[in-house]
């Protein structure tokens, strides 16, 4: 007997490679989206700071806009986007 696979359709779930499960600002899971968004993933991506903390991009942008100083809400270091 010979078995040939013609095609294999698998099912997978995607997740962000991050050091935490939830966004520190909106407390929603990273794999979900920020409260202002409807669709997760490409439409509501994560960003990493130089301090290695990460957030939904919409959350951190909103945070930075509302603050006089550009600090990470978790560690109070100056916020810099980490473009790795």
């Amino acid at each position: 007997m010979k078995v040939t696979i013609k095609s294999w359709t698998g099912v997978a779930t995607w997740r962000w490679i991050a050091n935490d499960d939830n966004c520190g600002i909106c407390r929603m899971p990273f794999d979900s989206c920020c409260p202002d968004c409807k669709l997760p993933g490409d439409d509501c991506p994560l960003v990493w700071g130089a301090c290695s903390h990460c957030f939904h991009i919409h959350c951190i942008v909103k945070w930075l806009h509302s603050q006089p100083q550009q600090q990470c809400p978790m560690c109070r270091q100056d916020w810099k986007f980490n473009n790795k």
Partner: peptide, 14 residues
């Protein structure tokens, strides 16, 4: 060898 496809799901929403 063979075609492979995937259905990639957003776990939080399923």
């Amino acid at each position: 060898k063979f075609a492979s496809n995937a259905m990639i799901l957003s776990a939080q929403f399923w």
